[in-house]
């Protein structure tokens, strides 16, 4: 008795994580190679810029999902909050609210919905999925009622989108002369902040502690409740930002813009290698997952697959990937 356990002895640190990231990056390269070979124009300047833009939307939306997944939770209200903030912002602007306060109002709304999600799903442990689903639906119903006041088109809000917002999320957008859409810069900045905070501060590490072992976390006085609510609040805020950015992209408010993000956020998290049971992975992995999904989408589109078919493919991908990382223990071991 002086050596680490032989069966697992001397494994390099954070094995699972680094394996996943390596796997993800390999997948990324393979997909890119396949796509540039199979899809004409894949490596073109415009395509790369538009992929970057789409990745930025997905990446920001998946940020909150990652935080929830790290705790073993899930946020199904993301698409609804995205849709709601999209049309709310459009309406606010239509009603003559200056753009800066309008954005703040929408962002605050997102945070409030997130906190509500957190409070309710913490109370109803293990049912986060249903709770957030139901709450999201209520929110999107409510915000559509609000936005359709005095309008004949319910669900879509037409109106002038300020040019700065268009510029934020336009494929042709530039930042300080760089040919990169500003929203991509926002994404990169967010990513740097999140990855740093998650790895370098006590606050960030608390997420891993709670996700890894809730009981042990409470023994070292980390408040599971606080972390849980914060994760959902972050998710609400990120959904609101995505919704607003998508308004700039599409130029008109449409409640359905969030739809695709219902499952792509979960898929990005899972493909990146963050376990839905909590504790493993992180936003760094999700970035890889986001890029994989974006390139895969581009590849599937290039191969002529419809949006519906892509969805089916993603659906088929999730079970084997989850099975690879996290299976429940056998009943025999629980008696």
């Amino acid at each position: 008795m002086s050596k680490p356990d032989d069966s697992k002895g001397n494994v390099p640190g954070r094995t699972l994580l680094s394996q996943n990231v390596v796997f993800g990056i390999a997948l990324l390269l393979a997909l890119s190679a396949a796509a540039s070979f199979l899809v004409p124009g894949f490596v073109s300047y415009t395509n790369i810029r538009s992929m970057l833009l789409l990745a930025a939307f997905l990446g920001i939306a998946s940020l909150g999902q990652t935080q929830c997944a790290l705790l073993g939770g899930i946020d199904m209200s993301i698409p609804y909050v995205i849709g709601s903030s999209n049309i709310l912002l459009a309406s606010l602007l239509n009603w003559g609210v200056p753009s800066f306060p309008a954005c703040l109002i929408v962002l605050a709304g997102g945070v409030v919905v997130g906190i509500l999600n957190g409070l309710l799903s913490f109370r109803l442990q293990g049912q986060a999925l249903i709770v957030t689903f139901g709450l999201g639906l209520a929110i999107v119903g409510g915000s559509q009622i609000v936005t359709s006041i005095g309008s004949v088109y319910a669900g879509t809000v037409l109106g002038a989108v300020p040019s700065w917002l268009r510029g934020m999320s336009s494929v042709a957008g530039t930042t300080f002369g760089l040919p990169i859409p500003p929203i991509a810069i926002v994404w990169i900045a967010l990513a740097i902040v999140v990855v740093t905070v998650m790895s370098k501060t006590p606050f960030g590490r608390s997420f891993y502690a709670v996700g890894g072992n809730r009981q042990a976390a409470s023994r070292v006085l980390i408040s599971e409740f606080r972390i849980w609510v914060i994760a959902y609040a972050i998710s609400g805020a990120m959904s609101a930002i995505t919704g607003m950015a998508l308004l700039g992209f599409s130029g008109g408010g449409f409640v359905g813009v969030g739809e695709p993000y219902l499952f792509t956020t979960v898929a990005a998290v899972v493909i990146g290698g963050t376990s839905l049971l909590g504790g493993w992975g992180g936003y760094g992995s999700t970035i890889v997952g986001t890029l994989v999904l974006t390139i895969l989408t581009s590849l599937l589109v290039g191969l002529g697959l419809s949006y519906a078919m892509q969805q089916a493919v993603f659906g088929l991908l999730i079970v084997p990937i989850v099975a690879l990382y996290t299976r429940s223990p056998s009943l025999r071991d629980q008696i």
């Binding site: 590490r205 890894g212 070292v220 006085l221 493993w280």
Partner: peptide, 24 residues
């Protein structure tokens, strides 16, 4: 059940509660 964080390193398992107590 209530001791280790299986997802974290040896060092973090040691220092996690100390983040908050002695070192701010």
């Amino acid at each position: 059940r209530e001791g280790i964080f299986p997802n974290l390193s040896i060092f973090e398992n040691f220092s996690l509660p100390l983040y908050r107590s002695r070192f701010g």
